[in-house]
Design a binder for these strands. Structure first.
Lengths: 311, 311
DNA sequence: AATTGCATTTTTAAAATTAAAAAAGCTAAT
DNA sequence: ATTAGCTTTTTTAATTTTAAAAATGCAATT
């Protein structure tokens, strides 16, 4: 008797095949691969670090969408339509669980959630099964903004509740990111620097006005995390990633003025120049300055400051 | 037919009552509460943030151990024996799961583990049930030193595999901890500073030679995390806690020379003095210096350096 | 009036079961 | 010789069931 959950199609699982389908579609458009190109399941599987099964399933999805064409006993081939279609729109973007995830963050930031809740309260409020609730709570716990109470129930900590949460994240980054540039193991390839610079130039040449909010945010994160990764210090990278993950929840709610991104991109380019020259001390100083600028350009933060900066 | 798992006593669960029993016993000895003192279940429950049920269960454990005496319809009372007994030894210290947790870290640091493993491989190697393996892997993932692979299986990242992991943690702390002292919201009570200072003096007056390795490590962590907490910056605190959690796995393996702790304690006292005077800039500079000293006193780290420090 | 002791209800965790997804293997076609 | 297509096996996730632990409620006792 499956009357209860008939709406939820199939089982959820991690849904690797959809992710792979998106990646492959992206791969075809980025290269780009010309129509008629043969797609080898084995090669893709090796590249992605999986087996042929999920790749094959992804091929079927893409064939359904018209991106690939299937020929019996010969495999899958790129179609002419592959480059026209707005693929990203057809592929599932956000699932049930991540909707709930953002809903939790939103309600918490709006002050609509009690500071402690039981698991059943969660399930009821966000329409989740027991397993889904546990998985969501566990993710949030991993990110650090909820904690288990002794006995039953969960409690949101100050991380997202404090009014100057965003300023705190910037001050933490001001401590970490310049230090990362001075790490003894710091090393970055010219190609990586070129790639970063190219992205910034694309933004300056118009994308700032046209790109999605998601993409604008992601570009900043990528720039800073790439430099952090180059430091070779895994702990610093981990800390930055965590803080960016949470910062996203706060920033999304108020991303409006696109003008400030011009200055950001220019400063990013300047940092890239300094790093390329190997002027790491100057790069570190400038990075600190840059983060300070970015912070002060948040209209949420500026009013909180009373003249006394610490840089 | 429960023939299979007869060995595992009862269900595991989080075992709140044992933790509470340990806390209550500790509470009695720390205060100390004199023999005959009545223990109110309700008051303790409120203090601990739980209900009377687990407190009552903890009382029963302590009565069994002779720490408390039960009188019908009157409740539980502290016994004379409460202060003699070496309670901590009688209470369960490490459970099945945390044994496995340390075993994983140990084998990984020894290079005895493959970099990728399936969940069943875990279960087999460490003698875990499916649920236990998932919970353990999830904890390790939370700490950041293992990651899920696409498809099946898990992969250890560089965090614990890199030879200079320990040095990386110190350099991260050198960036964060001085900055924490300069946070605008930094605030710490005189009592807290007194408590920290008292602990350091106890150590200088003999405990360095007598205390357990666990306690020695814990003292350092408490000192640094207390100051970090005083900064009011939740993100910095979170990052420090994470790094300390992992540092523990590395440090435990090589804690031998107790002499270096004398210098550490003296430096801790000096930092406390500076903070008490409100000389935060000096405190920050000295903190950086202190961390550098501590790092260089690790015999694992010194040989890795080739003269070029960055501070 | 407050607190214990006990019964009841609620909440969560574990175990067992079931099913889906991914990996691996094998045969036939190119 | 390599790759596709299919089958089998392995691995993991979801579901269901069961039971333990914690919270709550209330009468009895101090």
């Amino acid at each position: 008797m499956n009357t209860r959950k008939a709406g939820r199609q199939g089982r959820g699982k991690s849904d690797l095949k959809s992710k792979l389908a998106a990646q492959i579609a992206n791969h075809i458009q980025e290269r780009p691969l010309s129509a008629g190109t043969h797609m080898s399941a084995q090669i893709l599987a090796d590249q992605m670090g999986t087996s042929r099964s999920p790749i094959h399933a992804a091929f079927l999805i893409l064939a359904e969408m018209g991106v690939l064409r299937h020929e019996t006993n010969r495999g899958f081939f790129v179609t002419e339509a592959a480059h026209e279609a707005r693929l990203s729109e057809q592929l599932p973007s956000r699932d049930h669980l991540s909707d709930a995830y953002f809903a939790v963050a939103d309600q918490l930031l709006d002050g609509d959630l009690p500071s402690t809740m039981s698991e059943v309260a969660f399930r009821d409020r966000f329409g989740l099964t027991q397993v889904e609730a546990r998985s969501l709570l566990s993710q949030i716990q991993k990110e650090g903004w909820i904690e288990r109470r002794p006995g039953y129930g969960w409690e949101f900590n100050e991380m997202l509740r404090t009014p100057d949460a965003l300023a705190q994240t910037y001050r933490m980054r001001q401590a970490l990111e310049p230090a990362a540039l001075l790490e003894p193991g710091f090393s970055i390839s010219a190609e990586t620097l070129d790639r970063l610079a190219a992205t910034e130039r694309d933004f300056l040449n118009g994308e700032i006005e046209t790109a999605s909010a998601e993409k604008l945010y992601q570009r900043g994160v990528t720039f800073h995390e790439t430099l952090m990764q180059a430091s070779g210090n895994r702990y610093m990278l981990d800390a930055l990633r965590r803080v960016n993950q949470i910062r996203r929840l706060i920033v999304y709610r108020s991303m409006v003025d696109r003008k400030r991104y011009y200055k950001q991109s220019q400063e990013h380019l300047e940092i890239i120049q300094l790093v390329r020259r190997g002027a790491m001390n100057e790069a570190a100083v400038f990075m600190r300055h840059h983060l300070s600028n970015v912070m002060l350009n948040h209209e949420e933060i500026a009013p909180l400051l009373h003249g006394a900066g610490n840089g």
